[in-house]
């Protein structure tokens, strides 16, 4: 269960399959999550993200394939699993008249080695609201509390599903910081989201799921680069120069003149590479603009309209 990176694999999913009708919701999905990382599952609505997570959390029984979480079978070893895996559900509702502190203390009472509810409230920024009823909390605070419930058992792994859906921009940013805090405490995070900026900001690696299948799995930067055409750098040179200076660079794929400006397209650490090469031949650059392909570009390209299904399947086989 140790990969070449040397880190322990805490979740291993192998050819997972789950169908609710004739069409499979999750089809031959395989991936593994390393200890200490934030692993993102992204994909359009109805792609099968939540179903996959529910199989991992032991809420659903897979039709085929295997799932191992910390070496446990989520179906057979449910009780042991829930001691170590905290789960925040997409539609986790609480009774309207339960107070914040009560909800945390209640969940703490289910675990053998719970976290302190008071400390969690500090971490979650909920201390001032400890006596508030659940129904009076704002959307962002409700989500915070629900993250708290996933953490109160001192889990090794936290599964967070569509955490920031419906939150305003500030609340989303606060929640992101919170997730980073959680990761810094040593908790492995499995994050399900359909927000690309969220995955890009938080995740060490992301898996793109579409129509129940894995279409890509890599770091957000690598995914963006592979599908979105890399980085575009454009500038105004101080003196004319031969474009060959740049075209012969290893990571540069294209160099074009746009009027007085020069635009370079490539991958990798394009910016220092280009600037160094130009400095070597005595060319200074002005008005430098850089546009990097984002995960969103990759997402749109990979999931795209239904007609783009063929190239998408090809990526999936990589």
């Amino acid at each position: 269960m140790v990969r070449s990176s040397g880190r322990r694999q805490v979740i291993v999913v192998d050819r997972l399959r789950k169908a609710y009708g004739p069409a499979p919701a999750v089809d031959e999905v395989s991936f593994s999550v390393e200890e200490g990382e934030i692993f993102g599952i992204i994909g359009p609505n109805g792609a099968g993200k939540t179903t996959a997570v529910e199989c991992i959390a032991g809420l659903r029984e897979p039709d085929g394939g295997t799932v191992r979480v910390l070496g446990l079978d989520p179906q057979r070893d449910r009780a042991a699993l829930h001691e170590h895996v905290g789960v925040q559900l997409q539609e986790g509702a609480m009774p309207p008249k339960i107070r914040v502190a009560e909800a945390l203390e209640l969940f703490a009472s289910f675990y053998r080695h719970p976290a302190s509810a008071d400390e969690l409230m500090v971490l979650l920024g909920l201390s001032a609201k400890r006596h508030e009823y659940f129904k009076r909390l704002s959307g962002g605070l409700k989500q915070r509390l629900s993250v708290g419930l996933a953490l109160v058992g001192n889990p090794t792994i936290a599964v967070l599903d569509e955490l920031t859906t419906g939150l305003d921009p500030q609340a989303r940013r606060d929640t992101w910081e919170l997730i980073e805090h959680v990761r810094d405490r040593g908790v492995t995070v499995l994050l399900v989201t359909h927000f690309m900026d969220e995955a890009e900001r938080l995740c060490n690696r992301v898996m793109l799921v579409d129509h129940g299948r894995v279409t890509a799995l890599d770091t957000p930067a690598a995914l963006a680069e592979s599908a979105g055409g890399g980085t575009h750098l454009s500038f105004l040179p101080s003196v004319p120069f031969s474009l060959e200076v740049l075209t012969r660079l290893p990571d540069v794929s294209e160099v074009v003149r746009l009027g007085e400006r020069v635009q370079v397209t490539g991958t990798g650490d394009l910016v220092p590479l280009v600037l160094n090469a130009l400095a070597h031949v005595g060319v200074q650059t002005h008005q430098v603009q850089v546009h990097s392909a984002t995960l969103e570009d990759a997402f749109v390209r990979l999931t795209g309209p239904p007609t783009a299904a063929a190239p998408l399947a090809e990526v999936g086989r990589r």
Binding site: A57, G58, H82, G92, R112
Partner: peptide, 9 residues
């Protein structure tokens, strides 16, 4: 709520 409780020990 029931689903949430179902995810605890």
């Amino acid at each position: 709520w029931g689903r949430q409780l179902g995810l605890t020990p």
